[in-house]
Design a protein around this nucleic acid. Structure first.
Lengths: 180, 180
DNA sequence: CCCTTTTCACCTAGGTGGTAAGAT
DNA sequence: ATCTTACCACCTAGGTGAAAAGGG
């Protein structure tokens, strides 16, 4: 499924006439797997059936092994610096999956693990032997506030409500004004 | 609205590494306006209410004045020759209107007039004074079998049925298998 | 009378969380 | 007990011809 909210960046300082590729990948934040705090531990009884727990996570052991991470190219790549800079760039086509055998090119993550999205800008070097300069032709940006725990189902009521309130595709689950 | 069927081309012979713009425009086939044959002229009574007539057109006078024709750039332009050639290029974003004040960039046509779609390939010349070579840097293709009469409502039952049978968006009006 | 405009139900295409059943 | 999967109703977004209403 898509990431929500979508990762978006405003870009400055490119050469307007040069070509760039924009891409994202995801790296593990740590070497752990997490699990939800149980009601027993919290001393709170579940409401029966499907009960959300707390907003806290417990370390549940060592991370599952991960295959080399996939990369998502922004579908407008390559494009001129002027094009990238003239408006906010939105990675709304990026999709996540936990299916290790995925063949749709989606980003594969382990559920219940924490990830750091990374944003990469690659300058398309017009020189003949551009491979030689690969090291100096890209720049990586990390925004720590975009870290998240991957899940297959929401573990926190307030996250669910936030998404229902702010994602237009979930409008069917709203029961009051989205302005709240 | 969209053209249907969509204008599609298969392209050969480009320089795979060079940039090209692909575009379309529409030129009048003649200087006439047309009207439908009436039932009286045909000797056939209309079925009452909304009756389709024949498949023939009568000349109804001189063409209405037309503003300079708009041009539709294929939204993937500019792109490399290799990109254009590797699959059929489809102009399915092209839209037609009879609204002379249209500000959506759609192609403006006069209803009840005949048009010839034209397809243009423009080579993006990397030379500094490329404007000088504009004349030699494009090529126009005309397929006479794509001529049509612009209308605001269908004038022929068989055209309606053909479109209902072959346009997926009109599936709601089908009453039998689309294979027919 | 002939053509145009507006609105509508009905599609395609695809992104939501809910829910129940499945897996470990 | 905890997490995952598959399916669903319900959305967004937008392309159909039908039909009724409008215009000259």
């Amino acid at each position: 499924r898509r990431m929500f909210p979508t990762f978006q960046v405003k870009i400055f300082g490119m050469d307007p006439m040069a070509d760039y590729m924009l891409l994202m990948d995801f790296v593990p934040v740590d070497d752990k797997r997490y699990r939800q705090v149980t009601p027993a531990v919290l001393g709170a009884a579940g409401a029966g059936g499907y009960a959300f727990h707390s907003s806290s996570w417990l370390v549940a052991g060592k991370a599952d092994p991960a295959t080399p991470g996939r990369v998502h190219y922004h579908p407008d790549s390559p494009a001129k610096g002027a094009q990238w800079m003239k408006q906010i760039v939105s990675f709304d086509k990026l999709k996540l999956t936990n299916n290790l055998l995925d063949d749709n090119g989606h980003i594969i993550l382990n559920s219940m693990h924490r990830y750091q999205p990374r944003f990469h800008v690659v300058y398309v070097d017009p020189r003949k032997d551009s491979e030689k300069y690969a090291e100096e032709n890209f720049k990586t940006f990390v925004f720590e506030e975009t870290r998240f725990t991957a899940v297959t189902a929401y573990q926190n009521h307030r996250i669910t409500q936030l998404k229902i309130a702010s994602n237009p595709f979930a409008k069917g689950f709203r029961d009051c004004d989205p302005e709240d």
